[in-house]
Design a binder for these strands. Structure first.
Lengths: 213, 213
DNA sequence: TGGTCTTATGACCAAACGGTCAAAAACGGA
DNA sequence: TCCGTTTTTGACCGTTTGGTCATAAGACCA
């Protein structure tokens, strides 16, 4: 019999405990990294004994993997939603705003992902080179099309997307630094951040006016 | 007698071994985090036995602290160099370029810092709330002055600097992701990144032309 | 109520960890 | 060459870590 967490027909207890474990593990991994988090710590936070935890997940690695699986599904949604048929400026601005809100609403997930990439992406290199890259190419082509049609300024689509990722995720990943500098608590700086980022990227893609270039 | 590494008059051997240890530790900590890196691993990479390593540094924590001390000194240099008397656009663009080049030339340092902040900045919270915050306020005031004088567009100086940090450091911290997507090796994408970032921030701070807003 | 499958636990294990210590080896100035 | 200092090492230690296992307790349905 395989692991309880991976059953086809999970029982109520399996569903509840699996959720509790993943929630506790997300806390642990996102703040302390893979090696820094311990099974004892996760088990205690989830309200289980360690052997009981290992009844639901076969190993530490399997918990981590399960978290990343969930994460990547939802992580790319904002970019997926970028509509090739929509208004270019509105689409890109909308993407920036959606991405920033994910940083605000899912900072632990952002940090989990950041930590994994920071470490060289040992456990998700395949998915970065696969689905993520494919989606990136698809949307980059859309943006390049807008560029070439003169609907937005000439920009390098890949690096534009990198900048959007960087600038938005920064508010989750570097939260400790931002709080230390601004002195704000509980995401009070997000409205200003959103206004700034919309300004930043709106100007970046605004088509050059007549007479320039 | 205090630790060999902290002597006032270090011997040649002390200097050499201390360097070797810090170099090995930078590799280890930047890719695996504080808990992930082990003394055995650092010792081996530095070509020493573990007790020998602990002859130079009293503890794992002391090595980590020494790395952060060095790092923070040089890390803020690009921002410090932002000249209040210079041309605003040139100063900000210069800052972007310098910061990006630090990501290119010191990616391990960038990742060490990122990992520390990601974990909640437990060991550098004081220096973030202190010297870093002070420098930030100083330069933010400069940028605000430029804004109010109409020399650059109205921008939130703090968030502008956050965006510059985020967008430039991204190329070091998320290198694994960028390589996985672009397929480039050895920093071949840096010229394009520099062109893009200069474009991005030049437009962000360009004063509004007559007739707009 | 009985029986079966699921869930939980205490005791335990080997390996890895950060760190200590006494003693040996190497260094370097007189 | 001598001798005090610096440097290096092997052996060792207590703790923590991820993980196992046999067994007990609990849930659920007939």
């Amino acid at each position: 019999m395989s692991r309880a967490a991976a059953r086809a027909n999970p029982t109520r207890i399996q569903r509840e405990k699996t959720e509790a474990i993943l929630a506790a593990a997300l806390d642990a991994f996102s703040t302390q990294g893979y090696r820094g988090a311990t099974l004892d710590q996760i088990a205690e936070a989830a309200g289980l004994s360690k052997p009981n935890l290992l009844y639901y997940f076969a190993s530490k690695d399997e918990i981590h993997r399960a978290l990343l699986d969930r994460l990547l599904d939802t992580w790319l949604e904002p970019l997926r939603a970028l509509d090739p048929e929509g208004d270019p400026a509105a689409e890109i601005e909308g993407y920036v705003v959606r991405k920033l809100r994910m940083s605000r609403d899912f900072p632990r997930e952002s940090r989990l992902f950041a930590g994994e990439v920071l470490a060289g992406a040992p456990r998700i290199a395949d998915r970065i080179g696969g689905p993520l890259r494919a989606l990136m190419e698809e949307k980059a082509a859309v943006i390049r099309g807008w560029s070439e049609a003169g609907l937005i300024a000439p920009v390098d689509p890949h690096h534009l997307i990198f900048s959007i990722w960087a600038a938005t995720q920064h508010y989750a990943d570097f939260d400790a630094q931002i709080r230390g500098i601004l002195g704000t608590a509980g995401g009070a700086h997000f409205p200003a951040a959103e206004a700034h980022l919309v300004h930043l990227f709106r100007r970046a893609i605004a088509p050059a006016r007549a007479g320039a270039g």
